[in-house]
Write a protein that binds this DNA or RNA. Structure first.
Lengths: 206, 206, 206, 206
DNA sequence: AATGAATGAGAGTTCATTCAT
DNA sequence: TATGAATGAACTCTCATTCAT
């Protein structure tokens, strides 16, 4: 039919200006997280990143203007993700402290133990902390928010403010230390056991 | 005679340079530990190392055949040092477990908190663990021996074998996690408090 | 009908884009003159040009097939403009030589001293003269015609053919040299004074 | 003879530490002047420079830490050369103004007309003046000193201070303009004639 | 054992140009 | 005609390592 043909024609025109792209910023961020976590920041080249994205080196700069810009985007994305999806769990008053902590670990363990490469923040903190002020502030915010989240759980578990802070810090330290040892010994059980011990810090542990 | 004078002159020159040993391997290792701990492995160039040693780049290779060779030597040296001087303290049956732990921390804290740059093993583990099999095995040995040392203290404190291992691992994790957070927040108190908490894990804490 | 509504919608979209002529070749040339004069040929990127035109990089190639093609168009346009609008003034026998020279300068000074960026031909001559034969011939034609124009004025001022040529060349050289120093010292007075001195070369100076 | 053999041996030792170099900074500067003058600053790559020096790209950085550093060294060297060897001629009171001017041109013409590539300062001024403040100040100093030198000659030729300055500026402008036209038309006579005209500005022209 | 010039591979980045839509 | 993602070559620069002396 005439109108149908025209429809198709015009539809094509409407698509005219939407050039297809091989990949999205979001996918690049996911790939970047993966590579940086496994290889570290300095040992991952722009070429590595581009190829992993199916792009040429030069094309990568369409998405991120520099390696640092990519890293910043990654840290921001991860930070927001943790804030909104993970740390927020700690403030859910409809669940017991123990339940919240369990959910927290249930969400995190598979991510952290995946290929035994741990947590990006943990992995690149010591490599990049002295490089960029911008990186540093996101890393600090990440750990602050994590400690705050755990503190809330310990508060709701009946601890004093001081005690809750101490327990929260200790728990974060144990988990980050566990992630390091997990990587050293290539043994995911080390992380799992550490999580169990953190759970046992709760008075009303299930 | 002209040629004789020149002979003497050149002889002196030759002695001057032949006798010159600007630095020892041991000193280079100490300097390397310092730089790697502060700047990381990848961000420390051979030029940085050479200059810090008062050498030219080319001369550095008379002492160590490569960057990796230097790193290996550093890891070995540090490992032996910890084995002989630090971890061995845990086996001193003439002291109480608490006393041993306290001495352990007293020896480590100043090293770790110096310039807030932490422990080389902790700092470069996550950066280099996936690089060299040789690095990996020393790093594993280091942490194994550390855990073993703590385990001995917890055993002597009246814990079961299983329980002692769990406490030892947990303690190492807490300290490594504390070193990371100390660096993130540039706050040495985080490490000191973590050590105190580890001490309190002892039944007969002083 | 649904399909009909969509048809109309898409038709509008198609008209929207089909009718859109964001910019004309002439406007691009004007913008190009401006950018090249200020930043030079090599330091002005196609992206700079496109953005200054409100286009995307890719769209620019619908107007000019390459950077060189744009430059050629610019040189041609400018050359024709000077031939028809400026150099032609020198042949206006209804005015005295001094009047013609004055009009010449009155038209040129504001263009040249605008933002102290001088004359495109002068500015890019030394940068591009060894690049493209095509550029070279327009640049040569421009300067030839300029000298010819001045020569006519000096002829009509009562000079011999030889003398008129010498004075014309000298005047062009003084003005181009003045444009260079104007830029070096960011001082428009240098050009204005140079023009005054050229005027004084006329016997019947006003 | 024994002592002779030993002499040779020790002589070799004394040369021990003097690693041979393929090229000197001074030679690189000369080559850089040549390339920049012919091709311009932006169109001359570090690779071009290195190859022209018989070096690999990376080796070039042993001599100059960056392209800008090389350019700065070149501008400084040229500026000092002109100050000490050329402009200084203008202040030689043992010669008449005309003699000084003639010597000045006699020294400059062969340099400028060599391969018809003109004067580096003139050639790259318009390309680099807006890039680096450091470049700008040397370029300004160069032209200031040149004008001062000519002014002294015109003063000694019996002109007032004001008049001498005007004549000096005009002369520099004519010469720079002549260099530009010389390049445009590939005709060294244009420069020579311009120099003659400058000489004629002297009252006591020879 | 000391030098430092030389190397060559590869880093991050820019840019003129192409092309599918 | 408009898009902007994609390209690939070239750019400036870094760095671990080698080597003649």
């Amino acid at each position: 039919m005439h109108s149908n043909k025209r429809l198709v024609y015009l539809y094509k025109i409407s698509l005219f200006y939407m050039a297809l792209q091989k990949i999205t910023k979001e996918e690049i961020i996911r790939i970047g997280i993966d590579l940086f976590r496994k290889q570290g920041y300095n040992r991952t080249s722009m070429n590595d990143l581009a190829l992993a994205c199916g792009l040429q080196k030069g094309s990568f700069y369409h998405y991120f203007s520099s390696k640092e810009a990519l890293m910043s985007a990654i840290l921001d994305t991860l930070y927001q993700y943790y804030r909104n999806k993970i740390f927020s769990l700690a403030y859910d008053q409809t669940k017991t402290p123990a339940e919240r902590m369990e959910i927290f670990f249930k969400k995190q363990e598979p991510v952290f133990t995946q290929e035994l490469t741990g947590c990006l923040f943990g992995n690149i903190t010591l490599e990049t902390i002295s490089m960029e002020e911008e990186f540093k502030s996101v890393i600090q915010a990440f750990f602050s928010d994590w400690i705050d989240a755990f503190k809330q759980i310990f508060l709701d578990d009946g601890n004093s403010d001081d005690q809750a802070l101490i327990l929260a810090r200790q728990s974060v330290m144990e988990i980050e230390g566990a992630l390091m040892l997990m990587r050293v010994f290539a043994d995911a059980a080390l992380l799992r056991n550490a999580c169990d011990l953190v759970l046992k810090k709760l008075k009303q542990a299930s």
